[in-house]
């Protein structure tokens, strides 16, 4: 068994989220694999274009929706730039699912607060749909999402959908200066919106994902609200190559982010060197 050899997936749909961020809907070429494949919210994969290399993204679709997976990526390097040139019907490689996952079972019966910034919504979106598809198992659901500007918001259709749901409180914000003329959402940085939108921490799990600077300023807000460190959960984005706990790249302290993570509680993160 060659753990480094990917399976082939066909691009079924492409959504251009922003000028440099895309979402692929993917299906396994091999039907047997398609049938047996399963994953959990928070896990990731290694996506490859042969001749260019591999890149690590989370699975952005929910495990409650089987038959396909989705991933969203920003064009930054060699592999993502090449992936951005592909069309529907093209074939890419996929290895996964890898890593640990969000504790959906333990979250049942609790309030869930989702906080995301920029492309950090991708892993959070996976959990949001997982929770919304099992809506009755959870109490209040709040979503706070922000991006630099209106143009940088991803999953725009879904943001509208969440905002229209009566049993979900959704706050979408853009950084000051990033609003367009017809922008009707919030204006302000994510931590400030969280402070405004959230009043209590009791029986609540907060899932936070976004740029390091957002996380840095959001954590104190949550702490002030009374969130216990073990109830704040995030997912790390260390550079990875193998995804299998071998190549050493994502090693931070005693953990391999690809195997022991990428999902960590704030309590666990605090025991690690700040090398993420």
């Amino acid at each position: 068994m060659n753990i480094y050899k990917p399976e082939l997936m066909v691009i079924k749909n492409i959504i251009d989220e922003t000028k440099d961020t895309r979402t692929f809907k993917l299906q396994f070429k091999d039907e047997e694999i398609a049938k047996s494949f399963s994953f959990k919210a928070g896990q990731f994969g290694e996506y490859s274009l042969f001749g260019e290399g591999e890149s690590t993204f989370c699975i952005a679709s929910s495990p409650t929706r089987s038959g396909y997976i989705e991933c969203s990526f920003k064009k930054v390097g060699k592999v993502t730039s090449a992936l951005a040139k592909l069309d529907v019907g093209d074939v890419i490689g996929f290895r996964g699912p890898y890593g640990n996952y969000f504790p959906i079972e333990e979250m049942k019966g609790k309030n869930v607060l989702f906080i995301a910034g920029g492309i950090g919504l991708a892993p959070v979106r996976c959990v949001i749909w997982n929770v919304l598809d099992l809506r009755k198992d959870f109490k209040a659901v709040t979503i706070v999402y922000g991006a630099r500007s209106v143009e940088d918001l991803i999953y725009k259709k879904e943001l509208d959908e969440w905002q229209s749901m009566p049993d979900v409180k959704t706050f979408v914000t853009v950084d000051p200066g990033g609003q367009s003329n017809d922008w009707k959402g919030e204006v302000g940085f994510v931590p400030a919106i969280v402070e405004k939108a959230v009043q209590q921490s009791e029986n609540t799990i907060a899932i936070v994902c976004g740029p390091p600077i957002m996380i840095k300023f959001t954590i104190p807000v949550l702490t002030k609200l009374g969130f216990a460190e073990e109830n704040i959960i995030t997912t790390l984005e260390n550079r990875m190559k193998c995804g299998l706990g071998k190549c050493g790249r994502c090693n931070v302290g005693n953990v391999y982010v690809c195997k022991d993570g990428p999902v960590f509680t704030y309590q666990q993160l605090k025991t690690l060197p700040a090398e993420y």
Partner: peptide
């Protein structure tokens, strides 16, 4: 020391190989 990199190499126009190469922290 056992850290490694994974890179693709093209051999000609449409074929190639994926390599596992030593890397260092």
């Amino acid at each position: 020391c056992h850290c490694f990199d994974i890179v693709d190499e093209e051999c000609g126009y449409s074929c190639g190989r994926r390599m596992k190469n030593w890397d260092a922290c």
